[in-house]
């Protein structure tokens, strides 16, 4: 079977055009901090990147927010960055 596939590829050594559709990302943050979290987190990744984490302290979330800003260049305003650690800790405890 494998050699047959290889023979077919040798006969027509091009790979086919591929076009796919990724599923809708339908989960957004809910609750009292939803606007803050959706505005600052979900542009780059869906909400479960936060909601699947083990329980993290505000301090640990502050380190994560700092990494997102300084290394991954997330455009987060200072005021939002100050509010995010507590909001993230609350979001994963709801």
């Amino acid at each position: 079977m494998k050699s047959l596939l290889l023979a077919l590829l040798l006969a027509a050594p091009t790979l086919p055009p591929v076009s796919v559709t990724l599923p809708d990302d339908d989960a957004i943050f809910a609750g009292p901090d939803a606007d803050l979290l959706n505005a600052n987190c979900t542009a780059c990744h869906s909400s479960e990147m936060v909601l699947t984490q083990p329980l993290m302290t505000e301090q640990a979330w502050a380190a994560s927010v700092a990494k997102m800003r300084t290394i991954y260049k997330a455009p987060i305003e200072d005021a939002d960055a100050a509010a995010l650690p507590a909001a993230l800790a609350r979001a994963q405890r709801r």
């Binding site: 559709t21 599923p23 990744h45 869906s46 479960e48 990147m49």
Partner: peptide, 22 residues
């Protein structure tokens, strides 16, 4: 948290544990 959705909505993929959509 330990529970994750299972789904087949991703292209060219059968049932997978969905850790993150995007």
């Amino acid at each position: 948290p330990s529970e994750r959705p299972l789904g087949s909505a991703f292209p060219q993929k059968g049932e997978m544990i969905i850790q993150r959509v995007r």
